Simulated assay, not measured.
Amino acid sequence: MTNSKTNLDARLERKPSVELSVRDLKVSYRTRNGYFHALDGIDFDLQPGSVLGLVGESGCGKSTVVKALMRLLPEGTKVTGEVKLDGDDLLAMGQSELRDVRWNKISLVTQSAMNSLDPVVCIGDQIVESILAHEKVSKDIAWERAESLFELVGLLPKRLHEFPHQFSGGMRQRAVIAMALSLNAGLLLADEPTTALDPIMQDQIMASIRKIQEMLKRSMILVTHDIGLVAENCDTVAVMYAGKIVEAGPVQEVLVSPEHPYTIGLHNAFPRMLEEGQERPPLISIAGSLPNLLDPPKGCRFQNRCPLASEICSAEEPTLIQKSNGRRVACHHVDKTEQFRTIANKSETWAIGAGDLT
């Protein structure tokens, strides 16, 4: 048994960050009307100590990726593919192996802190329970670690004795972050960690996560619909649309010079920092909605909303082409990207019918 908090902290800090490899991940939820194909062939890699942003509009499958990695999907869900964490396939693990991995090697910050905390157990006991499940330490040592975790996320240690309903939304979110860090897992999954918080609290929460990631050098996946959060916090980004990754690569390259029409549309739908004297361009929404994933369309799933769509887009699904410098793009008309980018910042470009520019 570890005989002091110092020994426990030192051992947990020696844990390496992890490497993650996801190949051909497919997830289909069972519904009354058939299977809803939430993910279809997701591929990405996460290098040790790096931060990957998963970005896209609501319903694109971002949170499903996180739930698949944690094996938290509903019973009856079809899951295929390969998810290797330091070479071990998470999808092939039995429940006993999975219990050893959760919180110990991979941990989760959910988007709804109130729903992830037990309302009738004080928060300190919930953090201590997660430590005792994996470490042979006394409850006193586990409680000392919980106190230091609260200090790390900007909460008073004395509030460990309180219950979730006694915390504000931002404080609950910090408590969930503290719990996710309890065993210094090599991979931190942050699923919309600032949802429903005011802008000031959003900034504070993300500052806490950035500080922790930089200090502990953990690997992290940040799931969000906010391109600004990705720009500030991530090394690489994968843009998702209707259950697929349509563009991926280094953050600065993908966000500054996007190549997929959907990424270009997202870029124009968010406010940007401007140089002094520059005129602020209008925010432009992408007309239309996501396709029905109970019966996904043939070809490109963005075809019904894309001004560049042509006959091939409805006939053949574009592959995620590997380009230079780690860039990947899935578009039949990637050769027209530079031309399209110059007119995509005009609202009339997106107001016209799909395929009217080809």
Results as ranks from 00 to 15, higher is better:
L98H: 07
S107N: 14
Q111N: 05
D125S: 00
Q126G: 05
Q126K: 00
I127G: 07
L98A: 09
M114Q: 08
Q126D: 09
R102Y: 03
S112L: 11
L117K: 14
S107T: 13
L108D: 01
L98V: 06
L108S: 04
V120M: 11
I123Y: 07
M114A: 14
Q111G: 11
D118E: 05
D100E: 08
A113Y: 03
Q126E: 08
I123K: 04
M114I: 11
N115I: 10
Q111M: 03
T110L: 13
Q126P: 02
S107K: 13
V101A: 09
L98Y: 06
V121N: 08
S112I: 10
L108Y: 13
C122H: 06
N104Q: 15
K105R: 15
V101G: 06
P119Q: 10
A113K: 00
M114P: 01
L117V: 12
N104L: 14
R102E: 01
N104R: 15
L117F: 13
D100L: 14
S112K: 11
V121Y: 15
K105W: 02
A113D: 04
L98W: 10
R99I: 07
D125N: 01
V109W: 01
P119A: 13
S112D: 15
N104V: 12
I127M: 14
Q111Y: 08
W103M: 07
D100R: 15
